[in-house]
Amino acid sequence: MKDTFKVEDLSVAYDRQPVLWDIDLTIPSGILLGIVGPNGAGKSTLIKTALGLIKPLSGSVSFNGKPYKKVHKTIGYVPQRGSVDWDFPTTVFDVVLMGRYGHIGWVRRPSKKDKEAARLALDKVGMLAYKSRQISELSGGQQQRVFLARALIQDADLYFMDEPFAGVDVKTEKAIISLLKELKAQDKTVIVVHHDLNTVKDYFDWLTLLNIKVIAHGPVHEVYTKENLKKTYQADALMTMDGTSDV
């Protein structure tokens, strides 16, 4: 196993409120990793910083030793479902096709091959029949499948997924996890922000417990302990533990 994604000394703050504090992570390729932590633990921020959407205070993120900009075509991203406007006038097929835009580059238009890829991806998530629907007509689970299809056609080696199981039905959740396991079987790496502690052990083989700092990181069976979870979900922020002045 080689390391595919590395975070070193990463700190991120909004104004002067630290959101991520001295994060060090080494993530090998070919694993299914869950990032778990309470609200405001910086899970989404970690992903967004990795994708260059947020500028860190200090530290760095690298992919096989290269910065994100050099390798963005090999990285797929599924944002939170709530981050877009589902009333937008666009069809399921169009949304999926957006996954190819990074490969296509500025100005050029999607080719037949891109469209074929979109069709295949839609088929894979069981949404081909809905391809001409406007996205506002979809249920939560269907929306998430569309987002997943969009990530699939990015044809990436490493995927970041922000809460893909939030607000989806049981059937969709099962379908998504089997797809993720399939990706892993193809030696791809999948990093998932997750919030349901009950399913962590079934879904992931690696786990990162995050609460502004990394509480624990490693294979699930080592990390998923009562002690670690307790530490992660401790009510008060860890930043103020040594009596520094609070805002």
Binding site: D9, S11, A13, W21, D22, D24, L57, S58, K213
Partner: peptide
């Protein structure tokens, strides 16, 4: 934060 990055790392 930038200047004392390593120090913070040692502290944590």
């Amino acid at each position: 934060i930038k200047k004392y990055r390593r120090l913070i790392h040692l502290y944590e």
